[in-house]
Design a protein around this nucleic acid. Sequence first.
DNA 1: CTGAAAGCGCTAACAA
DNA 2: TTGTTAGCGCTTTCAG
Lengths: 315, 315
Amino acid sequence: MNDKPDVSEETKKKIQKVIDKLGYNPNGIARGLVLQKTHTIGLIIPDISNPFFPEVAKGVEDRARELNYSVIFCNTDNDKKREKEAIDLMKSKHVDGIILSLSISNKEEIYKLEEKNFDVVQIDRKIPDSNYQAVVIDNTLGAYNATSHLIELGHTDIAHITGDLEIQTSQDRLEGFKRAIGTFDLDYKEKWIVEGDFSKESGYKAMKNLLTLEDRPKAVFIANDLMAIGAYEAIFEMGLEIPQDISVVGYDDIEIASIIKPGLTTMTQPKYKLGQAAADVLISKIDNKRNINDEDIILNPKLIIRDSTRGYEDE
Amino acid sequence: MNDKPDVSEETKKKIQKVIDKLGYNPNGIARGLVLQKTHTIGLIIPDISNPFFPEVAKGVEDRARELNYSVIFCNTDNDKKREKEAIDLMKSKHVDGIILSLSISNKEEIYKLEEKNFDVVQIDRKIPDSNYQAVVIDNTLGAYNATSHLIELGHTDIAHITGDLEIQTSQDRLEGFKRAIGTFDLDYKEKWIVEGDFSKESGYKAMKNLLTLEDRPKAVFIANDLMAIGAYEAIFEMGLEIPQDISVVGYDDIEIASIIKPGLTTMTQPKYKLGQAAADVLISKIDNKRNINDEDIILNPKLIIRDSTRGYEDE
DNA sequence: CTGAAAGCGCTAACAA
DNA sequence: TTGTTAGCGCTTTCAG
């Protein structure tokens, strides 16, 4: 008797007593079987060790809980095979929908899900040509603004350390960088674009690389903070100073960014909100199957200016 | 036909073809209903935003996956009510077992689970008088060693910033601190013990507090790195230097610890291993119900010496 | 308004 | 070896 209107209050109380006494727990499994609904959503993320994702996960879980859903969580380490496994797992657990972030090269899985009419929301990264709604942060705009900040400070010799270019995020940030360089009519030097993989170590390596060039850049926009931290180490190791010798802008605003010396100028991302929004969108899709609005949701990043950047003439 | 030995290879192949063609996915729900087994474990953690837990979660998820289990995840924000809700959720989802970390004051929930004979492993924090096996890191030993390190450097004026004393972890670290002070026959000053709550802000406040004392300590052992980061800020704000004016030892070895200047001397915890071990223990409990060995698993922390500590006489 | 019965998709036990 | 059937715990439907 699930809250039927025609049951007297008294009876309800009586029954409640019995329930408490026997410690009765409704069996969600049986319920799920007959209702074809598990009130569970899947969350597939690339790497929970990356400080970006715990906040997202928290946003998803908090909002899901508010809307009476629970979440099954899978970590893929950006591994295509594990992405596929995670999706299969979600299917066999019969989750009501999936929030996921796949590597760009794993289109097939998305297509398969589309065929089966699964409810899916893509988060943080959107696979090109996929029809699923995505909740993303405008990476191109963010990179554009970050680079513009350097340009507005008077810099002209600006390098860029990208993320793993297999991932759309990295492409978008590279695109934003290029656009800013183009808009302001600066020289675009291929050798000042170095590919990393979002890890601290790759940031270190890429920066070493840039600093040993004959004409080394005076400013660098780095595709995430973790790599920027690695870059800091490379810079210090070469006996250079930030921002006197080189200005650095990161991306993500992880906790370290405000703590490290000098404070890292970076783009902050609404991570928690991203998770919340994704859960909102997915669950409203699940609950009333008509798609009221299936446009992508694009959240805006914000520039946080700290001490790692300063004007070229300020010296 | 689940891999029965008496089915010919040929038939298997045929069937496999049909499976692939129809895109058949076994319904885990129905299976769970009849087998009374969901191949799912619950993970209830206090705060995924705390850099300690993502690694633990990763360890749990990785090992669970290897052993063919998936994980439902809940964040409780150290809130008693949410802890209860999370447990009820796990019950209604009929998970096969739970890995959890509850606030010390929430004993009733543990007792209720014990009554029902639920498979549970406590992680990181063990509720006193509970019968469930725990996988923990030896906090008392860690705190003892951290404090001893300061003492061996020649320090005698040593303060301690504790975590939230509602939490066993904090009690244990306080205990280890006291034991070291006692063992080496130093003065124990009540006013040099300040309670924090594991947040950066509380570390900042507690440190301010200590530094404004007339007889301020020359060294401080802080119950986690996040608070130590806050303490750094308070110290710098007062125009003091680390370790010249004050030595600092933290606890956790979060990523920031190696990046911040000066590098934070701290206790490193086998976080990933902790998660793995918990999943191991829980799943072996589930799989063969006899408890071969239900002693607590106690992992050892390790001291990482960086630049935030130095001898009193080194000046 | 209350009670009985069917069935969700699977597995295990049993019959052929 | 193969096919049939009961039943896991719930909800929904339909008859009383």
